[in-house]
Simulated scan of single mutants.
Amino acid sequence: MASSRIDLNADLGEGFGRWTLGDDEALLGVISSANIACGFHAGDPSIMRRTCELAVQRGVAIGAQVGYRDLAGFGRRRIDMAADELSADIVYQLGALQAFAAAAGGRVRYVKPHGALYNTAATDPVQAGAIAAAVASVDAGLPILTLPDSALAAAATAAGVRPVSEAFADRGYRSDGTLVPRSEPQALISDPDEVAARTLDLVQTGTVVSIEGVRIPIRPDSICVHGDSPHAVEIATAIRRVLAAAGIEVTAFS
Score class of each variant (00 low, 15 high):
28 L>E: 11
28 L>I: 08
29 G>P: 01
30 V>T: 04
32 S>K: 06
32 S>I: 13
34 A>Y: 00
36 I>A: 06
37 A>M: 11
38 C>R: 00
39 G>H: 09
41 H>K: 10
44 D>E: 13
45 P>W: 14
45 P>G: 14
47 I>S: 12
48 M>S: 04
50 R>I: 10
51 T>Q: 06
53 E>W: 00
53 E>L: 01
54 L>E: 04
56 V>G: 08
57 Q>A: 15
59 G>M: 03
60 V>P: 02
63 G>E: 09
65 Q>G: 13
66 V>A: 01
69 R>T: 05
69 R>Y: 10
71 L>P: 03
71 L>A: 05
73 G>D: 13
74 F>Q: 13
75 G>K: 08
80 D>E: 15
81 M>C: 07
81 M>L: 15
82 A>M: 11
83 A>M: 04
84 D>N: 09
84 D>I: 13
85 E>T: 09
86 L>P: 02
86 L>R: 04
86 L>E: 03
86 L>F: 02
87 S>V: 11
91 V>H: 08
92 Y>R: 10
93 Q>R: 05
93 Q>Y: 02
97 L>V: 10
99 A>Q: 11
101 A>S: 04
103 A>G: 10
103 A>K: 08
105 G>S: 09
105 G>W: 01
109 R>S: 15
109 R>K: 14
110 Y>E: 05
111 V>R: 11
112 K>E: 14
115 G>M: 02
116 A>K: 06
117 L>Y: 06
117 L>G: 02
118 Y>C: 07
